[in-house]
Write a protein that binds this DNA or RNA. Sequence first.
DNA 1: CGGAAAGTTGACGCGGGTCAAGGAATGTGG
DNA 2: CCACATTCCTTGACCCGCGTCAACTTTCCG
Lengths: 252, 252
Amino acid sequence: MPNKRKKLDLEELKVSCQNCTLADLCLPHGMEKAALVELDSIVVRHNPYQPGQHLFRPGDSSHALYAVRSGALKSYCITEDGDEQVLGFTLPGELTGMDGLSGGSYASAAVVLETSSVCELPFNRLEGLCHELPGLHRQMMSVVGREITSDQHMLMLLGKRTAEERLASFLLSLSTRYHLRDLSATEFNLPMSRQDIGNYLGMAIETVSRLFAQFQDRGLLEVRRRQVKILDLDGVRGMVEPCMRQQDAGSM
Amino acid sequence: MPNKRKKLDLEELKVSCQNCTLADLCLPHGMEKAALVELDSIVVRHNPYQPGQHLFRPGDSSHALYAVRSGALKSYCITEDGDEQVLGFTLPGELTGMDGLSGGSYASAAVVLETSSVCELPFNRLEGLCHELPGLHRQMMSVVGREITSDQHMLMLLGKRTAEERLASFLLSLSTRYHLRDLSATEFNLPMSRQDIGNYLGMAIETVSRLFAQFQDRGLLEVRRRQVKILDLDGVRGMVEPCMRQQDAGSM
DNA sequence: CGGAAAGTTGACGCGGGTCAAGGAATGTGG
DNA sequence: CCACATTCCTTGACCCGCGTCAACTTTCCG
């Protein structure tokens, strides 16, 4: 893990807000270039964060959303009896910190899994900008609404699905999200440990391990440590929707 | 939906936005009376809804948030294989419909459980008002942030907790929420069926039934159909945080 | 009053949690 | 560069919480 070069930073600056969720937040709803530049101007860019560093912890006074440009984050909180609950993962082009929108402090923590570059979007400046750019307000609501929908999807998963379906669904989610950012949908690295996956999906790490082995035996994919290669994407999709298969295939 | 009575409207108008989440949305952050009146002016009030009626269904084009003044709602969605997943319940003073903030259509459905009166907050008018009332924007974000936090709490519950802890936590949640609205924290009606509870908490209805019986045997509460009377609130609290008991008692 | 829906209770079995032992990759100090 | 520790992952054996199936009771409603 050598040191970070200025050059890389500059390169990434050029694509900022065009390759991430913030693009969804500006461009599609007909916001013109000027608005984008203005948005760029309130973004705080840090040096890359290193694995283990925290962007924030529960109770920290909340003042910003965070957009991941590269790397990966984990969101989690601590239960009353002291153990961790993983709430989700933030991949490049995604936002975290929305639970800080209420109350003035975060309810969760965000920790870096892989070396990451992250943009910071201060609430107060966002709010001001929302007044100038009418579309931005709608877009922020949209992003937040999507977060809620996605949490609800998880609720469904945890409430009703078997361990097998949950892991399959998790892999599909990663696949889709990487693909959205023009990365391979079938071959990628898991930025998180088995521990984190099991915790997130509500199952023991042993179960995660066994299921990976089982998927591999069935020829659905290859896993080696954190390297995943999906061989039969439709096969994996089929595990998520056990019934009504021949309906439309291109849902999520 | 036929005509509405002026009289009822006027009576309820007096308490509108002062006894519900919208109060949190206006008053606490120093918004003056005038702002409140202005907010009132965009609210659409309907005749009471009857059990079984839908406020919206998945795919309906989304145009409003809904605030429950009295009664109770259930939010749910339909999985790929056709069965229902209950996402939550909306009690008096609470909002639903936030998953419609993205996309332009709802991802979930909202159905009435008990005869309810409901206020409708059209997105477009809310948005306009946000520009005039700086505090409102922040408050909306706050409400949405709280929704996210609460969904995350559910994720924790479903992922890590036993059926017993989940049901206890559910009862405490109802208790707290009723209490916030100046209703009894220890004696209330369940607006939803065992079916709904089980579905929501990710367990079989038989398990719900057995746990209720067990709680009763232990002297924690009395349940008769949908009538609940909590006898030992601290006892119930103790089930949710099995470890570190003697810490602070007054958390949630 | 009869039929359906909602809730309760008991018997049984399986999915997956827990415990335990062992590999494989990575770090650490000598 | 090699012993050794540590962390991460895998695999097997056991067993319990809770889902499933089934029978029954109670409430609701036309």
